[in-house]
Design a binder for these strands. Structure first.
Lengths: 160, 160
DNA sequence: TAAGATTGAATTCTCAATCTTA
DNA sequence: TAAGATTGAGAATTCAATCTTA
């Protein structure tokens, strides 16, 4: 085994920094979101996806795809959100197996109230810390890693 | 409210890409780690931190600090790991409130078996996709965002 | 009083099994 | 058989309360 397998000191710094940034940023954003609007990040993602969909509704499997969630996770989570009045489930006429998930008035009100503050937090904590060049570099980096992951998935015959 | 509060199209791309990269990368690394060595990412982090400490042992609060975990999370997790024989808890002579956490032989064997493969995965999925310049840029970006978060924490009087 | 740590209950997530319809 | 979705059990995480000792 060559030492190509190990990380250099620079790589270690890069890797640990990257992980720490992700963890802290997420923790901070989640905390603020919860405090200001009573929504978890999971709630928020569901509501954003629905609110961007035509008619504020989406098939469950489409939501799964958009959020990269397992279907059982989504199902459990929707049950909780439905109990809180944020979404409703409806049957699908053209495919009797399927279910639609719709935003309720309350759900729409919740996301519309939460979004501006949340976006402002993202700006304050993330974009305000970076130059436009850095933002561009990060976009390229993300795409490169995502491409790599997609290739790997294809090779090993997995679903993304 | 000015539209400074909203994200530009470029920023949206950057933000969503960044989140997606983090999520997919973590999911993939966790899956491989679990499959190859029966360790979760949480297990792995605990074992790495202990294995790098002198004598393979650390105070519980030191582990908390190193991993940015809540103490109750650590305590529950250690109970599970202790039950699996990966770590043991020992009292502390100089501070009777305290507890040491030590790697067992089995715990050390587990991390030594898992680490090379895991590092190889990180290299394959992440570093091999990036140029040295991109790695450097990412390091700078992470530090900038972490600095911003630290400043925010200080201002609002929070602990990191 | 505060620091170090544990506990129990409630919430959330994962895994495997199941159900219904294409 | 496979796709879309739900369910229940078990594992992991958070929150608040507690316990002990500095």
């Amino acid at each position: 085994m060559s030492n190509d397998l190990w990380l250099t000191a620079d790589e270690q710094r890069a890797w640990r920094g990257f992980l720490l940034m992700g963890a802290k940023l997420q923790a901070r954003l989640n905390r603020e979101l919860q405090r200001r609007s009573g929504l978890s990040d999971a709630d928020y993602e569901v509501l954003v996806n629905l609110s961007e969909a035509p008619g504020g509704r989406l098939r469950a499997f489409e939501l799964c795809g958009a959020m990269h969630w397992e279907k059982s996770r989504l199902s459990h989570h929707l049950s909780r959100m439905e109990a809180r009045g944020l979404v409703v489930r409806e049957g699908c006429r053209t495919d009797a197996r399927g279910a639609f998930v719709s935003l309720t008035g309350q759900g729409r009100a919740a996301i519309e109230a939460a979004a501006p503050e949340h976006v402002a937090q993202v700006r304050r904590l993330f974009f305000d810390a970076l130059t436009p060049e850095q933002v561009e570099a990060l976009t390229t980096i993300s795409e490169a890693v995502l491409d790599r992951l997609a290739v790997e998935d294809r090779v090993s015959g997995r679903r993304p």
